[in-house]
Simulated assay, not measured.
Amino acid sequence: MGNSEITRKTGETKIQLSLSLYGTGESQISTGCGFLDHMLTLFAKHGRFDLTVECKGDTYVDDHHSVEDIGICLGMAFAEALGNGAGITRYGHIILPMDEALILAAVDISGRGHLEYGLEIPTEKVGTFDTELVEEFLIAFTRKSNMTLHIQQMAGKNSHHIIEGAFKAIARCLNMAVMIQEAYRDEIPSTKGVL
């Protein structure tokens, strides 16, 4: 438990991704989309996940396929690395400031993939990145990771700060949720006995 490697190849993308949940925040990210590289780098750092992502995608069309497929792969990696979830804390939450932006995030590693998305990003782009792709990434991630994620913007007008705050907040929540409780190492954190 704790490590995973995902390879996914479609007609639109080829992705290799490795994840260690209990790392130091080291990352090597090359997605073909500079803004996403930045977000995944800080995601790894703030979650203390070791993360490697290499994506070759049809970015000459746009970034949509690459962003969504990386979300799929990252979700698959979390699901694989968590195994049956024995011993994990399961829940995490944070209110995170990023300059004028304030983000609330909460996660439940529940076995049920669900996203409640409440970001109101004021611009259509940050640089060349289509800001609508943040939601697409998170939909793909939550579906494949089988997690419930609530992400809510409480304040903020700067698109970059809102998105960066969201990625940092999600990483911090996940770091809390995947932590092993030594006293319960062999227990599944659910009355059902499975997540």
Rank of each mutant, 00 (worst) to 15 (best):
E54V: 10
S159C: 12
M98P: 03
I15Y: 12
M179Q: 15
C73F: 02
I139F: 07
M1A: 09
S4N: 14
H150M: 15
T128G: 04
A140P: 09
L138I: 07
N84P: 02
L138K: 02
S145R: 10
T142G: 08
T191W: 01
S66Q: 06
D62Y: 09
L133N: 12
L42P: 05
L21N: 03
K9H: 11
K157I: 04
G83R: 05
A105Y: 02
Y117F: 13
A86L: 02
D63W: 02
S20D: 15
G118P: 09
S110I: 05
E164C: 01
T10Y: 08
S110H: 12
E187F: 00
P97M: 04
E132M: 05
I180P: 06
L149F: 05
G111N: 05
G92W: 00
T31V: 09
M179L: 12
E12A: 12
C73P: 08
E5L: 10
Y60D: 14
L40C: 13
G34D: 13
A171Y: 01
A183D: 14
F43D: 06
V107Q: 07
H38Q: 10
N84I: 03
S110V: 07
E5K: 15
K14H: 11
G193I: 04
D63I: 05
G113S: 04
T52G: 10
T52P: 08
F167K: 06
K14A: 12
A177F: 04
A169I: 02
T191R: 00
L104F: 10
H150L: 13
N175C: 05
A77H: 00
F78G: 03
L195K: 03
T52A: 15
G85T: 08
A77V: 04
S145G: 13
Q16H: 15
Y117D: 14
Y117A: 09
H46P: 08
D58R: 14
I29Y: 12
R143Y: 13
T41F: 03
C73Y: 02
T59V: 13
K157N: 14
D130S: 11
S27C: 14
V194W: 01
A155D: 14
V61N: 04
G127E: 15
L115D: 11
C173Y: 05
G127W: 07
S27F: 07
E164F: 03
Q181V: 00
I109A: 04
G32K: 11
F78S: 05
S159H: 07
H38I: 09
H93K: 11
K192N: 08
N84T: 09
G156N: 11
D37V: 03
E132T: 14
N84W: 00
A169P: 04
G2K: 10
T41K: 14
S66E: 12
I139P: 14
K144M: 15
